[in-house]
Write a protein that binds this DNA or RNA. Structure first.
Length: 425
DNA sequence: TCTGGGGTCCTAGGACCC
DNA sequence: TCTGGGGTCCTAGGACCC
């Protein structure tokens, strides 16, 4: 049997790199990109990292640094990042036989058994150069027998020119001896804290821990991680992306809301957006959940957090049905004495059209007078809204601007909107 | 003033069945 | 001096990832 070999291709500081790509004047300027609602930092250029700006820090905590160092701040521009991501992935698909897109800025390549006229390292360099030439974005490439090893190979050794070949077991162990355990893929804050109390502080120590102990004291997940560090693949390969199991739309409000009518507008809006995504995936939802909550960071204020869910008799992708159900879940949860900071709608029990169960008490589709009407109406709405965002919406939604995200530093849609094309003078 | 949003998987425990 | 055993399904909660 051929030994498995995976490459992880990871875009460096992806969002920040996308912003810099269209602003050559910022080549050496520290850049940060903010989360939705301009809340906290979710991407940093290497200059910003060098200044000690931490991932996830609320932007209002680093106001002084932004001013002092002239850090350039951007709101998240997912239209731009999504399009750049698509270009990177298309390039990768031309370079490797099997590509598993893992996230907006990462993909695994299955290199098992490819004819190796060049070394893995040369292959990695070719990937880097081609992506840079075609798209203009820098990537790191880690190559190893398992994804967990490839993952930290790609992320942790930019000093090697962005390509690390970890197929050699001795090299794996040498590098693992230096990697802190919390940097291993699958080991987060909680697990690393517990591991450290057991004296496990390096990746290599985790790899050498007795597997049954890990399973017993933690779970099968950590056991798998340890196996992967030892070169035994445990993460299944996804040739086609698995269909989504839930779809969520939620948002923190710019200002706290008190009135039921305001919450209704927000929840109606989230329900409509979630249902739009649902139709985009050509799925139907069998269940929906609505939640509302106060601001947990405001510890002085009384806290309130509720969620409610309902199963639909017949799975639906009709915004009218979902919005109406969401509102009837919201109303009994509402208490007027609280300041609400966030709400959301989650759709679950998603099914493909073909597997949809019909309502036993409904007339047969060919006899039902409105058969297909819902689908046609929604299709018309989506078509109009694709051309011009939020032109048609449910009456209960406040309107296009009411729950717009705070995005005070948004860059233009350079690649997806004619009006925003960069101009060459 | 000000702390994101959207996902996945696993486990434990309870209800229920025979 | 003792109170079965095995199975499924569901839910809530915890952990992780980007």
């Amino acid at each position: 049997m051929r030994k498995p070999v995976f490459a992880l291709v990871d875009c460096n500081n992806f969002y920040a790199s996308c912003e810099k790509l269209f602003r050559p004047d910022l080549r050496h300027t520290p850049v940060v990109v903010l989360s939705n609602n301009d809340g906290c930092v979710v991407a940093r250029s290497k200059e910003a990292k060098a200044l000690g700006i931490k991932m996830g820090v609320p932007v209002h905590h680093i106001k002084a640094e932004i001013r002092r160092y002239g850090i350039q701040v951007f709101s998240s521009n997912y239209t731009l990042y999504g399009d750049m991501s698509r270009r990177v992935m298309t390039t990768l698909e031309a370079l490797a036989p099997k590509v598993d897109v893992y996230s907006i800025d990462e993909a695994f390549l299955d290199l098992t058994g490819i004819d190796r006229v060049v070394s893995f390292e040369d292959f990695g360099r070719e990937v880097r150069n081609t992506v840079y030439q075609n798209v203009g974005l820098p990537v790191c490439v880690g190559i190893a027998p398992t994804r967990t090893l490839a993952n930290y190979a790609a992320k942790k050794y930019p000093a090697t020119g962005g390509v690390v070949d970890l197929t050699d077991p001795d090299r794996q162990r040498r590098l693992m001896a230096q990697v802190p355990v919390e940097e291993v893929w699958g080991v987060g804050r909680k697990l690393s804290a517990r591991l450290q109390t057991m004296g496990i502080v390096r990746a290599l120590q985790l790899a050498d821990t007795h597997l049954a102990t890990l399973r017993k004291q933690f779970s099968v997940v950590l056991e798998r991680t340890a196996r992967e560090l030892n070169g035994v693949p445990c993460v299944p390969w996804e040739d086609v992306p698995a269909p989504k199991k839930q779809i969520m739309c939620s948002r923190s409000f710019g200002q706290p809301l008190q009135k039921l009518s305001d919450l209704e507008e927000a929840v109606a809006h989230f329900a409509a957006r979630a249902t739009e995504k649902l139709r985009g995936d050509q799925q139907y939802a069998g269940e929906l959940m609505v939640f509302i909550r106060t601001n947990p960071f405001n510890t002085a204020a009384p806290q309130y957090s509720r969620s409610a869910s309902v199963k639909l008799i017949q799975p639906s992708q009709d915004s009218r049905v979902i919005v109406q159900q969401a509102l009837s879940l919201l109303r009994p949860m509402y208490r007027e004495e609280f300041d609400y900071a966030k709400a959301g709608v989650m759709l679950g029990e998603l099914v493909e059209e073909a597997g949809r169960q019909e309502d036993l008490f409904q007339a047969a589709p060919e006899q039902a007078p409105d058969s297909g009407r819902s689908e046609r109406l929604m299709a018309v709405m989506d078509t109009i809204n694709r051309k011009s965002r939020a032109t048609v919406y449910m009456a209960r939604e406040a309107g296009p601007a009411a729950y717009a995200m705070r995005r005070g530093h948004l860059s233009p849609a350079y690649t997806t909107c004619w009006d925003d094309l960069p101009k060459v003078r």
